[in-house]
Design a protein around this nucleic acid. Structure first.
Length: 493
RNA sequence: GCCAGCGUAGCUCAAUUGGUAGAGCGCUAGAUUGUGGAUCUAGAGGUUACGGGAUCGUGCCCCGUCGCUGGUACCA
């Protein structure tokens, strides 16, 4: 025999054992129902794409943490890192597709990042996007679908928040932040000698810092915008070198907060009164807010939050994200926005598009933590136990009667005794067990065992004799009534 | 990527100043005359992450690799 191989999983990847997989599929079904209710149509694309399709000809795969793929022809291939780039390719490749093209797609994506709590190298995204629509009604519709999805998923209280990339661009103008910042940065440490170098950073780097506001607080944000600071571990965090008047204006902007959407927008309009183009952009947000309001999406579920700074490189208009209020540590479970440059790379033209993406795995992790999903190993509602060979044929018959009646049923195919069989059902949380042996056969009945009820009653007795005598949670029905009696019991479970 | 800590049975952990590994839970089988729980009995399961070094001798010390955890950076 050859050398044995250690069974193991590449870091950042997971198996989905039946319990988790069942819960995932349920989540996916629920989301899909909502998306189809909005009339989005399904799309599928391959996991593997040409590298230049993924990253453009610039070849920045290093900082995009793409997994490469080796093939026999030695071509430059990679695994998709999101579902939006494949969508852009499809839009460009099939001009015959109807516009607007409103599609949903649920697929795994891969990123070669450092795995972290709730962050994996393979994870599944479920996206909706509307391509070819200019109107902000499309953005409002995406947010409504986000809210409806989270409601359908029974995640508990949540908040969808939105802002706009344009608003943040205006902030740079308002605070007079230049397009290019010169940043002093310490490199090295450890075995390499430390030295200070100067680096050019885009003005939009300000947003990267603002995004940390929740996490590190205003004092630290102020430090990082100006001179930098040393954190607990002694690491020097470089500052962006802004001056105090610039920071003051940014703080003035960040102070615009209210649980009421209308109020935030009013304040913003006042603050940005002198900024060119501000009125138009704020008008877009106001129309979105009004539309949502008239549809019954109140301030409790959807809010305007100017601190959202997600994914700026790529968005060109409204941006949205959703957080679970009972599980804020999971961050944004659902996010998106408008990105009108989607197809530029392929077609050289602008095609307006807006959409959102929900992280199925992060969501499941949050729901497990919140105790809002039941992890059940079994799909069967009924286990037909087999007492011995003399009743085997009839047990097989019964199992198929139940299946043909549409009741998910497992027929016990192992070789253990009746006690083990019931334990097997117990461990997998199969709610009902059919027991049928010589006694039942002689009397023309079957025994239906309600496992959950038995579990409760078992706690009340310590004597096995008593436990066996009462046989908690069992009832006998005529053999002929198997299917209707089972159906009735399951309705009560 | 960087910093720190950790890595002993499926899980949670124990093992006195270095003297060649143990418990609970779980699992398996059985008993309680055809029933989950409780109880009782028995059993399986570990090259102490991996590789090297120092030592008469190491789970324990040193070096390296890998993995995990926390922090930090990154996150289209």
């Amino acid at each position: 025999m050859g050398e044995q191989v250690t069974p193991r999983l590449y870091r950042g990847l997971r198996d989905y054992l039946p319990e988790q997989m069942g819960a995932r599929l349920k989540i996916i079904d629920t989301i899909r129902r909502v998306y189809e209710n909005y009339g989005f149509v399904p799309l599928g694309t391959p996991a593997i794409e040409y590298l230049d399709v993924l990253v453009g000809t610039g070849g920045q795969e290093a900082n995009r943490s793409i997994f490469g793929v080796r093939n026999p022809e030695d071509e430059k291939l990679g695994l998709r890192f999101d579902l939006t780039v494949p969508l852009a390719r499809v839009i460009s490749q099939y001009p015959e597709l109807p516009r607007p093209f409103r599609r949903y797609q649920v697929s795994p994506v891969w990123r070669a990042d450092k795995p972290d709590r709730g962050r994996y190298r393979e994870f599944t995204q479920f996206d909706i996007d509307s391509v070819g629509v200019e109107t902000e009604m499309a953005d409002a519709e995406i947010m409504a679908a986000m809210a409806d999805t989270l409601t359908a998923l029974n995640v508990g209280p949540f908040r969808v928040r939105f802002s706009s990339r344009m608003v943040l661009d205006m902030l740079l103008r308002f605070a007079e932040v230049p397009a290019v910042l010169r940043v002093k940065k310490v490199v090295g440490g450890g075995r390499v000698e430390k030295e200070t170098v100067e680096e050019e950073r885009p003005g939009a780097d300000v947003f990267r810092v603002l995004d940390k506001l929740d996490k590190i607080g205003m004092d630290r944000v102020r430090d990082e915008l100006t001179t930098g600071y040393k954190d607990e571990s002694g690491d020097q965090v470089p500052g962006l070198g802004l001056d105090l008047s610039q920071v003051k204006r940014i703080e003035q902007f960040l102070a615009i907060q209210s649980p009421r959407r209308g109020e935030v927008l009013e304040q913003l309009e006042r603050t940005f009164a002198g900024v060119e183009g501000a009125k138009d952009q704020i008008g877009v947000l106001r129309r979105i807010s009004d539309t949502l309001g008239s549809l019954g999406y109140g301030d409790d579920r959807i809010a305007v939050d100017l601190s959202i700074a997600r994914g700026l490189a790529y968005y060109t208009g409204p941006v949205f994200e959703a957080v679970l209020l009972d599980a804020p540590q999971f961050g944004s479970v659902f996010g998106g926005g408008r990105y009108d440059d989607l197809v530029l790379r392929f077609l050289g033209e602008r095609v307006p598009a807006t959409g959102a993406s929900i992280g199925v795995d992060r969501l499941l992790a949050a729901l497990v933590e919140l105790n809002r999903v039941t992890l059940r190993h079994a799909t069967a509602q009924v286990l037909v136990a087999v007492m011995d060979d003399t009743v085997r044929d009839e047990c097989v018959q019964m199992a198929f009667e139940l299946r043909r009646a549409g009741i998910p049923t497992e027929l016990y195919l192992g070789s253990k005794g009746i006690g083990r069989q019931i334990k097997y059902a117990d461990q997998q949380r199969v709610p009902l067990v059919v027991v049928y042996g010589g006694d039942e056969k002689a009397r023309g009945v079957v025994v239906l065992k309600e496992m959950e009820q038995g579990r409760r009653l078992a706690a009340e007795t310590t004597s096995r004799k008593e436990w066996l005598r009462t046989r908690p949670g069992q009832l006998e029905v005529p053999r002929a009534d198997l299917v209707p009696a089972t159906r009735q019991l399951l309705a009560g479970v």
